[in-house]
Amino acid sequence: MYQRHFQLQHLPFGLTPDTRFFVPLQQHQDVLAVLKTALNAGEGFIKISGEVGSGKTLLCRMLLQQAEPDWQLAYLPDPCLTPLELRWALALELGLHYSGNIDPPQLLQLLQRQLMLLAAQGKKTIILLDEAQALPDDTLEALRLLTNLETEQRKLLQVVLFGQPELNSRLGAYRFRQLRQRITFSSHLSLMSRKQVTAYLRQRVSQAGATVPLFRPAAEAAICRYSRGIPRLVNVLAHKALLLAFGEGRAVVTAQHVRLAALDTEDVSPKPKSWWWYSLVAMTLLTAGVAVAACWPGGALL
């Protein structure tokens, strides 16, 4: 849309977690260090919590990229699974094939056999579960029971739970006291500071191909204020602000562009003043930016 205008090779602020644009902030590095230490220890559950949009899925994908040679990772992005669906999802990730003729006890035996085979090959089998706060209660309990599979020396399965803070509340329930005791490592992903938001914005546009700053300091400060340091909101505001600057033919993003972007974005706080006037202007400029992009030779909206 605005790539040619700002001389960018890629869109720098997409909502899809893209490891090409990973910014190694201190809190992300700390959580990755905890994960690697815990996984090398070889036992138990590991819990990573963080607010909505704080970058948990991106961390999960970074872990997939940085996997040790002896890790056998099973990534399960969909938490809305029954206990049986969870076992089948794990089985498929480990290379087994689905068959409607296999009943639940047989499936459990096949899983145990596959896990023991992997262990004999020196592999550590690890489940990465995203959005774990949405796991049904029965599925959480089934997950705990799966970790009972073991040899005389060690467990056959480790579990990493990535979830929102609601996961902590759920695991605090009496019925999950056994699972709670198996959490050997846990870490919380904190949000970005003002300084980190600035570094994040500058590194992302640099990674996208920009050779000059695209955000004025006041614009960076405004993005930090309205996003509250949440990476997903930073991306949304930065993208819309770039679109507004493009619609005006400006070479840099100003604080005014960010204020207009904030008015068109859910969950920002606080909302800018004179909301009705800014909202009208924001809608006009966003529409103009989309129209210009659509008419650009060879242009595409996204």
Rank of each mutant, 00 (worst) to 15 (best):
M1S: 15
Y2H: 09
Y2D: 05
H5P: 03
F6Q: 08
Q9E: 00
H10I: 00
H10W: 09
P12M: 05
F13T: 07
G14Q: 06
G14T: 10
L15T: 10
L15I: 09
T16Y: 11
P17H: 03
P17R: 07
T19C: 12
R20P: 03
R20E: 10
R20L: 09
F21M: 11
F21S: 10
F22L: 07
V23S: 03
V23Y: 01
P24K: 09
P24T: 05
L25T: 15
Q26V: 12
Q26E: 15
Q26T: 13
Q27R: 05
Q27Y: 00
H28V: 07
Q29I: 10
D30P: 01
D30F: 04
V31I: 13
V31D: 02
L32M: 09
L32H: 08
A33Y: 14
V34I: 11
K36V: 12
K36S: 14
K36E: 14
L39D: 02
N40M: 15
N40I: 14
N40Q: 15
G42L: 08
G42I: 10
E43P: 00
G44K: 12
F45S: 04
F45D: 01
I46P: 00
I48P: 00
S49E: 12
G50F: 01
G50L: 02
G55D: 10
G55Q: 13
G55K: 06
G55F: 04
L59A: 06
C60F: 00
C60L: 11
M62Q: 14
L63H: 02
L63G: 02
L64V: 13
L64Q: 15
L64C: 15
L64T: 14
Q65R: 15
Q66E: 14
A67K: 13
A67N: 04
